[in-house]
Amino acid sequence: MTALLSLTDMEVRFGAAESMASAVDSVSLEVKSGEIFGIVGESGCGKSTLANAVMGLLPGAAHVDGSAKLQNREVLGLDEKSLRALRGDEMSMIFQDASASLDPTWPVGDQIAETIRAHRKVSRREAKQQAIDLMTEVGIPDAASRYGDAPHRLSGGMRQRIVIAAALANQPKLLIADEPTTALDVTIQAQVLQLIRRLRDDHGTTVVLITHDLGVVAEICDRVGVMYAGQLVEVADTADLFAAPRHPYTRALLAASPGVPTESRRLATIPGQVPAPSDQIPGCRFQERCPRRLETCMTTPHREPVFPNEVACWNPEPLPAGMASPTDLLGEK
């Protein structure tokens, strides 16, 4: 599969030159067309900042460098008019809080229809019918009668479905979902995940799913990238990552997840906390929390490219016998 989204040395910094804080640091990544790619990591690791940088939604104080290409078209540096033409059309985003994404005074159906009319030359009647069809597709019962409802009249799960319908209104090639199930109960969460998978299968939409929940990753994602303190530290097929995590941070996340079986009955904890973007750390950013650190880790950051089953680590867990090595996989990339 070809890459739909290609990131090269992406950096996002905030602040003045003398006290610059790095929220995203030299992230390079390819997301294949038609796949669901998960990005995981603790809060403060730069996941949402990376997504907002791709969408061009960061505040003016942010300094963004590197390259982000959507189907070989450079997205970084586009003017606001060009970005508005792309957002909602070629690429869309589902935000964590559906309530904050919807205008509380405007009927939900009209909000979907307006998204259509912003990018397509259709009449109001045609846009309304398309909006009703989308509401039906995402599982809103009796969509025509719910078209005129204000957001507060819908449940949290229904509001999230409206946001998904609006994001998919113009059949974008790329859908970024930032914690789309955080505020939902487990039953509605499962329904939303099934909806995202079905939309990928039916429409070929490429999905980047940002989440804290490794159970969600295991259920829906084809591949996954692990971020720590603004850096991408491991990328692998989902099955390989769960079967043989190689970066110490990935192993720690899995051990601390209640949905992942561990040898111990007690959940493991990760000592310490994620360093602040303004912290100046000479070596690996995970060094103070890492049980496998070496002298090299204290002084020299690992900057090698992250390929499938390869990690940004000086002392990773070895690959199990029979699993392809990173060198073997380079020819398949």
Rank of each mutant, 00 (worst) to 15 (best):
C221R: 02
F14G: 12
E295V: 12
E80A: 12
L29I: 07
H63E: 15
L330T: 14
H203D: 10
H247Y: 04
G77A: 07
V122K: 08
Q231F: 03
A62C: 10
K81E: 14
G139L: 07
D133Q: 14
V216W: 01
Q171C: 13
Q273P: 00
R293S: 15
V260A: 04
M323F: 13
G204M: 11
L29N: 03
P301K: 04
M1N: 13
L267C: 06
L134N: 05
T238K: 10
A244W: 02
L241G: 06
P245H: 05
L86A: 06
L78H: 01
M20P: 10
G44Q: 04
D133T: 13
R197N: 13
H119L: 09
A239Q: 15
D25Y: 00
L193I: 15
P172D: 08
Q111H: 10
P305Y: 07
R159A: 11
H119W: 03
M93W: 01
R13M: 13
F242L: 10
A243H: 12
T136R: 14
H212G: 01
C45A: 12
I196M: 15
G204N: 09
Q160W: 04
V138T: 08
I94D: 00
V224K: 03
I188F: 11
E80H: 09
Q287V: 15
N170I: 10
S67D: 07
A183W: 01
H247D: 09
A3Y: 03
I196W: 01
T296W: 00
V311Q: 14
A118I: 11
A61Y: 12
L267T: 08
Q231C: 14
P308L: 14
G157T: 10
T182Y: 00
F37Q: 06
D89I: 03
R289G: 00
K128N: 09
Q273W: 12
A61K: 13
I220D: 09
A324P: 09
D185F: 05
E35S: 15
C313S: 04
P275F: 01
C221V: 05
Y228F: 14
S26G: 13
R120D: 12
L7M: 05
P104I: 05
S123R: 07
G88C: 01
L168K: 05
L294F: 02
A85R: 14
M55Y: 03
A324D: 13
S155I: 10
Q130G: 04
S6A: 14
P141A: 12
P271W: 00
D237C: 11
H203C: 05
K69W: 04
M10Q: 13
P180E: 07
M323I: 11
I188K: 07
A53N: 04
A51I: 01
Q287Y: 14
L83W: 07
L184V: 09
V54C: 01
R285V: 03
V224L: 05
T115K: 11
T327A: 15
V122Y: 08
R13P: 03
G15E: 10
A165C: 08
V207D: 06
L174N: 10
R197V: 14
S43V: 03
P316G: 09
M135D: 10
A244H: 11
K32M: 13
P248N: 08
A53I: 06
D240S: 15
P245Y: 03
A51L: 01
L154Y: 06
H203Q: 14
I94F: 00
A165S: 11
L329K: 05
Q194Y: 11
V24Q: 05
P151R: 07
I164P: 02
A98C: 04
